[in-house]
Amino acid sequence: MIEILQFEFMRNALYAGFLTSIICGIIGTLIVVNRLVFLAGGIAHSAYGGIGMAFFFGLPYMVGAIGFSFVVAMIMAGVSLKAKERADTIVGVLWAVGMASGILLLDLTPGYNVDLMSYLFGSILSVPRSDLITMAAIGVVILFLVSYFFRDLLAMSYDEEFAQIRGMPVKRLYYMLIGMVAVTVVMVVQVVGLILVIALLTIPPSISEKYTKSLAKMMLSSCFLGMVFTTGGLWLSYRYDMTSGAAIIFLASVVFFLSLFLDRVILLFKKNIVL
């Protein structure tokens, strides 16, 4: 088992998994608590438009994808603040338009064509060192913003109106949160793929939410679970020669359903004691 760590790509994959788990644990907790999973999915998929744009105009990937997703994310945030009841429709439309425009732009790009599939499941086994550094830097910025605004974010997530009455800049905080989601998603998509991002943003927090009593503990527990899933998934993929991204997600979902089952058992057990 240890011998696989002598390969640099394996070490980088582990580091990438750790960094992704930390970023996704923090942002994912805020997404789950604020029920923004659908919106995050929309942002992640619309990043395709950004990828297409980057190739079409010959821009660097990061500039195109982050720029595009950021704009789409701000539109979604604006719509969900102004017309809450229409928000899911608008997100759904932008989700589809983003993906379609990405593919069309790639069709129109002459010559070499990218395999968009590689953005779906990513390739955690081929993460270069430079990406790790960018991820670490973004992680530090997110960690700083979230700790600085921690109590504002907590109060806003629990009761937006009360937070607003207490003088917290609820709208700006919301835009900031969505902005952080956009940057996180684009950054991590490149490394581990679209599907894995959504899985890591939602599965560890939704398991942690049931067993933790504070937002900070939920974040910590989500980061830890994410690390367990990425490391365990990597080991599975190495041991049984499976696609790494899919193995990580599969492990995470097994634990997710186990926790649901466990809750049922605990509930039944409690009922029996009462009876």
């Binding site: 789950v32 608590v33 029920r35 600085y148 605004f149 109590r151 504002d152 907590l154 109060a155 997530s157 629990y158 009761d159 109106e161 009360f162 937070a163 207490r166 003088g167 917290m168 800049p169 942690s208 939410e209 049931k210 933790t212 009593k213 504070s214 937002l215 503990k217 939920m218």
Partner: peptide, 28 residues
């Protein structure tokens, strides 16, 4: 407020919720 539409599992203790009333932006 009338009621708060949050998740069934929102991770905060009763004390955390009361402490939200003590927070203000200048205390960050």
């Amino acid at each position: 407020p009338q009621q708060i539409k949050h998740n069934d599992n929102f991770p905060a203790s009763a004390l955390d919720v009361v402490l939200m009333g003590r927070h203000s932006p200048d205390k960050r």
